[in-house]
Simulated assay, not measured.
Amino acid sequence: MTQETLRTSRIEARITPDALAIVKRAAELEGRSVSDFVVSSAQEAARRTIEETSLIRLSSEDQRRFVDLLLNPPPISPALVRAKEAHAQLFGSE
């Protein structure tokens, strides 16, 4: 099965003539069709966006604070104790 036969969906986009000229030039430089260039560029941008939103980036100071709080958690607040008791009354304790 060729890659052509795997393509089953279509997208359309309006683009300015100047933007199209840039995309065409870039596709030519890579020796690809405009369609292939646009699809692969969109996929790469989508992957990058998903990766960036899936990661949490912390400064060195924030990393140290995070680990310190995991290793030395603060005492449980009265509000959290009340919330735990309310949860146990509603859903039963485990």
Rank of each mutant, 00 (worst) to 15 (best):
M1W: 11
T2L: 06
T5W: 09
L6V: 06
S9C: 09
R10P: 00
R10V: 10
I11Y: 15
I11P: 06
E12I: 10
A13G: 05
I15G: 11
I15P: 03
I15V: 12
T16L: 13
D18M: 09
A19S: 11
L20F: 07
L20S: 05
A21R: 12
V23C: 02
V23E: 06
K24Q: 13
A26R: 15
A26P: 01
E28V: 13
L29V: 08
G31Q: 04
R32W: 04
V34S: 08
V34L: 03
V34D: 00
S35I: 04
D36W: 06
F37K: 03
F37G: 10
V39H: 03
S40K: 13
S40L: 15
Q43I: 14
Q43L: 13
R47L: 12
R47T: 02
R47F: 13
I50K: 08
T53W: 03
S54I: 09
L55F: 05
D62H: 10
R65Y: 04
R65A: 10
R65P: 01
D68N: 11
L70R: 04
L70S: 00
L71Y: 04
I76R: 09
A79C: 08
R82C: 01
K84V: 11
K84D: 07
K84I: 13
K84T: 14
E85T: 09
E85H: 07
A86I: 06
H87Q: 10
H87I: 07
A88F: 02
G92A: 05
E94H: 14
